[in-house]
Write a protein that binds this DNA or RNA. Structure first.
Length: 228
DNA sequence: ATATGATCATGC
DNA sequence: GCATGATCATAT
């Protein structure tokens, strides 16, 4: 099997995208980087998004940072997920930045979290730090949509977290809130600030936060696909 | 400052 | 050991 070529155009449909992703499984990050003419960093300490960017190049994701899905034409979001030798996720999964103001009228149905997670192409990649970046292998991709139970779990956590945000309690939220979805910092450093609602309803400046999927949730959705 | 892509690394 | 809070690069 030869190393696939990077794609320029976005796929016409989700199945084509999935097939394209399947053709990458088994190859190493070093092989793909070389074929794409990209230099491979020594590790991910500085370029944390490098793996994700590499796969975007191969799958023809709409380059440039847009506010919505990676493949808006076909309604698919791309997520690489680092896994250990047993296939278990090594990290939580960032979903999107949490809106801390202007939330009147926003519901779960119309939320960015739900929209981003409507359909996700998960691409597992070996992520153990003992494995040199260049020799880490791409795994079997999975095209996933939340089932009724998963949607309900996500909705409950999202509503709990958004209630706290709207009620001016964002600074009392920790990563321990939520069963499957959590709120954590998403910033350059802890000095970064964005507007939010304070305890008494007044505007405050606080650390930007993002929604993340907990490992237990992604572990189960991978299992639901790979061992049933 | 906000958005994209996430992983790092210290405290417990 | 591992989750929480902190952090890194880049583009606009």
């Amino acid at each position: 099997m030869s190393i696939p070529l990077p794609t320029t155009l976005p796929p016409q449909d989700a199945q084509t995208l999935l097939e394209r992703a399947k053709s990458l499984s088994g190859f190493t990050l070093g092989e793909l980087a070389q074929r794409a003419g990209l230099t491979i960093p020594p590790d991910l300490k500085r370029e944390k998004g490098w793996v994700g960017m590499l796969l975007e190049v191969y799958l023809g994701a709409s380059a440039g940072s847009k506010p919505e899905q990676d493949f808006p034409e076909i309604g698919v979001e791309l997520k690489t997920i680092p896994i250990d030798h047993s296939g278990n996720p090594l990290e939580t999964t960032f979903v999107c930045v949490a809106p801390l103001t202007g939330n009147s009228g926003v519901t779960w149905e119309s939320s960015h979290v739900r929209h981003k997670l409507t359909r996700v192409l998960w691409i597992p990649v070996e992520g153990e730090r003992q494995i040199p970046l260049a020799t880490r292998r791409i795994g079997t991709p999975l095209l996933w949509s939340p089932n009724a139970e998963e949607d309900e779990q996500l909705r409950q956590d999202w509503e709990e977290l958004m209630d706290l945000i709207v009620l001016g309690k964002v600074e009392s939220i920790t990563a321990r809130h939520g069963e499957v979805l959590q709120l954590r910092p998403k910033a350059a450093n802890n000095k970064a600030r964005t507007e939010a609602i304070g305890e008494k309803g007044q505007p405050i400046m606080t650390l930007p936060r993002g929604f993340y999927l907990k490992k237990s949730f992604t572990r189960q959705l991978l299992a639901r696909h790979f061992l049933l």
